[in-house]
Design a protein around this nucleic acid. Structure first.
Length: 510
RNA sequence: GGCCCCAUCGUCUAGUGGCCUAGGACGCUGCCCUCUCAAGGCAGAGAUCACGGGUUCGAAUCCCGUUGGGGCCA
């Protein structure tokens, strides 16, 4: 039975790199009917915050990455045994899932390792270590720990203790041989033990270091596969050494490549959105983000790029993950988002666009779903909704005169303000008297007008489009006119007709 | 600086010794459709497979080196 985990530090929002790691873990768990575990690595007390924990929950929930074990989403404020304050309730039998609540467990195993002789006490002070590092650097040697305290006598230790020095616990790394592991993505990776320094396992404060807590948790939570970012590759041999020292089997590792920004440097805020919640706020659909993220570093044999949810789960394979780093391409995400938006039903679309619309006049509420659907094929993100639809909700929008002037400059019949007024007057007259104000009815009427004038269709349609929206590009004209109705249409035609002398560049004949 | 990882169109990638005069997708350009913009359809430009050596009848694919990028430790 596969058990995988996602183990973020709650020191900020969940960024796309982390989300992609979570997704790959989740995908595999779902595909192989395994268990997806969420563990919060909050041992960095200074930088960890409950707010970050909530953000991680929100992000995972938005992406649809539900966890089978871990803190209970919404279980905030639960109280622990013995009256001590516990911030979150949890689900699963391997908890607690917050590392800060597992301190005694780490202590137990570090004591065991110390007794076994796998660990030793190091009394070096920060200053001494720093001085040593500087010296090594000066001599152009690798600044590794000197193993000074590795063979201290009991007497020497006693004297350090008498000085009040609190020791760190270091791992006694074998001085020969190699530590090797088979990575699911990169095949065999090996490190010479000589290159690994005697790393710290327990800090002088008594708290575990990342590598130690991680090993203890991964074992106790019965993690079978550790799928994480490439930035952890050099932690892996240390963790394996700890596993071996305690006598536990190490899990299978898979290291995902790192994500880069569009310019090839490490993805950061200056490239655009990096936090998952930001994508939500910018009008992306979680399905699109999931689909896109899945493709950043993974591909099927036929380079398929659109996946139904279940299909993604069925087809995902760790072994087909890319070894080289992937650059985040916002343009492709936007394209993909557009694809997913076009698949929505009208009511889904409205629900998704709604938060981006701003104030909507009450009288338009009943047809809002239809209005929003008019531009369904155009949104790349919902944030564009305001630009696309704003004129529907605001009777006093500004006209973009340069648009119609540009058209008139190229037009055969619509050349002057007088021409514009003439066609607007005729438009008002015919639409005002039109019995059938349906899409088809409007279309027939408008085409007839153009024919009667001897004008090109565009020369009639565009003035109307301009009157009604202030722009020359927008939704299908007949559909929007029919939908919004006669009064709305005539009111806007009248408004434009009333704006005298507003045509700056084009020749005006009074 | 040390160790580790990586290297195919601008980007994501397919490719695991002959099917590759390197395929798909985004983006870009043009055409068609058309009331505009999109969407859609079609076409096109775009990669001496980082470079140099090998191995082999034959290499993007295997080996070695170089260069470049990245990660971790400082």
């Amino acid at each position: 039975m596969m058990r995988v985990r996602f183990a973020p530090s709650p020191t900020g929002y969940l960024h796309v790199g982390g989300a992609r790691t979570a997704l790959y873990n989740w995908l595999l768990a779902r595909k192989l009917k395994g268990t997806f575990i969420l563990r919060i690595e909050d041992t960095d007390e200074l930088r960890s915050s409950d707010d970050s924990v909530r953000q991680i929950f929100d992000s995972l929930r938005w992406l649809g990455l539900d966890w089978d074990e871990g803190p209970l989403d919404g279980g905030e404020g639960a109280s622990g045994r013995g009256g001590e304050k516990k911030r979150w309730a949890s689900k699963g039998n391997f908890g607690p899932y917050f590392q800060m609540e597992r301190q005694e467990i780490y202590r137990k195993y570090s004591q065991e390792l110390l007794t076994k002789g796998a660990l030793y006490e190091c009394f070096c002070t920060e200053e001494e270590l720093q001085a040593h590092r500087d010296q090594a650097l000066l001599a152009k040697r690798a600044p590794r720990y000197s193993k000074l305290c590795r063979r201290l006598s009991e007497k020497e230790k006693e004297s350090f203790r008498a000085q009040g020095r609190a020791p760190t616990l270091r791992f006694a790394v074998p001085e020969e041989g190699q530590t090797v592991f088979d990575d699911s993505i990169r095949d065999r990776v090996s490190f010479s033990n000589l290159e690994l320094e005697d790393f710290i396992v327990v800090k002088s404060s008594g708290g575990p270091t990342y590598n130690f807590a991680c090993v203890v948790d991964d074992h106790l939570m019965e993690i079978t596969h550790v799928i994480r970012g490439e930035d952890h590759i050099s932690n892996t041999p240390k963790q394996i050494l700890i596993f071996q020292a305690i006598g536990w089997p190490a899990p299978q590792y898979a290291h995902l490549s790192i994500l880069l920004g569009p310019d090839g440097s490490r993805l950061s805020k200056r490239h655009g959105a990096t936090s998952i919640l930001e994508f939500k706020d910018q009008g992306y659909l979680s399905q699109a983000v999931v689909n896109y993220l899945a493709l950043l570093g993974w591909a099927t044999q036929d380079s398929q790029d659109l996946f139904a949810h279940e299909e993604l789960i069925a087809k995902f394979e760790l072994e087909r993950c890319q070894k080289n780093p992937a650059a985040f391409d916002y343009a492709k995400l936007q394209w993909m988002n557009g694809i997913y938006i076009r698949k929505l039903t009208k009511s889904q679309l409205l629900a998704a666009v709604r938060p981006f619309l701003g104030p909507v006049p009450a009288n338009l509420e009943p047809i809002l779903e239809e209005i929003v659907a008019l531009e369904q094929e155009k949104y790349r993100t919902f944030a564009e909704a305001r630009d696309l639809l704003g004129f529907f909700f605001n009777d006093n929008f500004d006209y973009r005169w340069e648009d119609i002037e540009g058209l008139m400059a190229k037009s055969l019949n619509l050349k002057t303000r007088a021409d514009l007024d003439r066609v607007l007057a005729e438009l008002a007259k015919r639409l005002g008297g039109l019995a059938d104000f349906s899409v088809a009815g409007v279309e027939v009427s408008l085409r007839a007008l153009a024919k009667d004038f001897g004008w090109k269709n565009t020369e009639v349609f565009h003035p109307l489009r301009f009157a009604v929206s202030g722009k020359l590009q927008g939704p299908s004209l007949f559909h929007m006119i029919a939908l919004l109705g006669r009064d709305w249409t005539l009111g806007r035609v009248a408004r434009l007709a009333g704006l005298k002398n507003s045509l700056a560049g084009a020749p005006i004949q009074e």
